[in-house]
């Protein structure tokens, strides 16, 4: 069974007078443990696709099965629960809470998870956040605010936040877009390492260098998947 199964997904936007067909009959299956990139130029529909895979947006038509369950009929609360339990997000602009320390940022998803998992008390949350920050190599900087951290460190905090609820899927939107090439390399390596530990990773990018470091590359153009290939490495 595929972790992600997109069936005949369509999405339209009305921008002023224009009707934009952002996704046009997209069919994808991604299995657990895969390391996939979705690559395309801006306007190719990859961001829309990411929003739909991340349950941040709903498709206009078609079905999206996440972990075998059809998400298109879910309520807003159910979608929130799925985002919390099954998906970890990493964004280009990090999207950390600026006034909260690295530790607090990582603890946040677990606070929402405590609605579903009553065993998550404050002690446990703290302990898991520290463990996860250790995993991304930031144990020394847990009490720093995001603006006291370098770009690469911020992205590591974001990755720790994405990982902390042990999701099945890490969804990264241009995770290296705001980083220099050396730091980008470190972040990609971190993703590869996580993937080798069994986490399914989907990276959305316009950067072919990043895409080629993934095991599978889905190339998009004009709202369609035009190529499904293995990565260069």
């Amino acid at each position: 069974m595929a972790l992600i199964e997109l069936q005949n997904i369509h999405k339209h936007f009305i921008m002023g007078e224009e009707d934009i067909h952002a996704l046009n009959d997209v069919n994808i299956k991604i299995y657990e443990g895969e390391f996939t990139s979705i690559v395309g130029t801006s306007g190719s529909g990859k961001s829309t696709l990411m929003n739909i895979i991340g349950l941040l947006d709903l498709p206009g038509e078609g079905n999206y099965l996440l972990d075998g369950i059809n998400t298109t009929t879910m309520t807003d609360d159910e979608l929130s629960e799925y985002r919390n339990q099954k998906i970890g997000f990493v964004f280009q602009s990090f999207n950390l809470l600026p006034k909260a320390s690295a530790l607090k940022n990582v603890e946040m998803p677990m606070q929402y998870a405590s609605t579903y998992n009553k065993n998550l008390d404050d002690m446990k949350i703290r302990q898991m956040a520290l463990e996860t920050l250790n995993k991304v190599g930031l144990l020394e900087r847990v009490h720093h605010l995001p603006n006291e951290l370098s770009g690469g460190q911020r992205q590591r905090v974001a990755i720790a936040r994405a990982l902390v609820n042990s999701p099945k899927l890490i969804l990264a939107d241009e995770p290296t877009g705001a980083l220099d090439s050396k730091t980008s390399e470190e972040i990609i390596n971190l993703f590869r390492e996580l993937n080798s530990q069994g986490v399914t990773v989907v990276i959305v990018t316009h950067d072919n260098n990043v895409a080629n470091r993934c095991k599978r590359v889905l190339r998009m153009s004009d709202g369609k998947i035009i190529e499904d290939s293995k990565g260069a490495e």
Partner: peptide, 16 residues
């Protein structure tokens, strides 16, 4: 607004 977006993305419900 951005904080709200982040919280919603990591699983906050509207009621939260």
């Amino acid at each position: 607004t951005r904080e709200i977006g982040i919280r919603r993305a990591v699983g906050a419900r509207r009621s939260d």
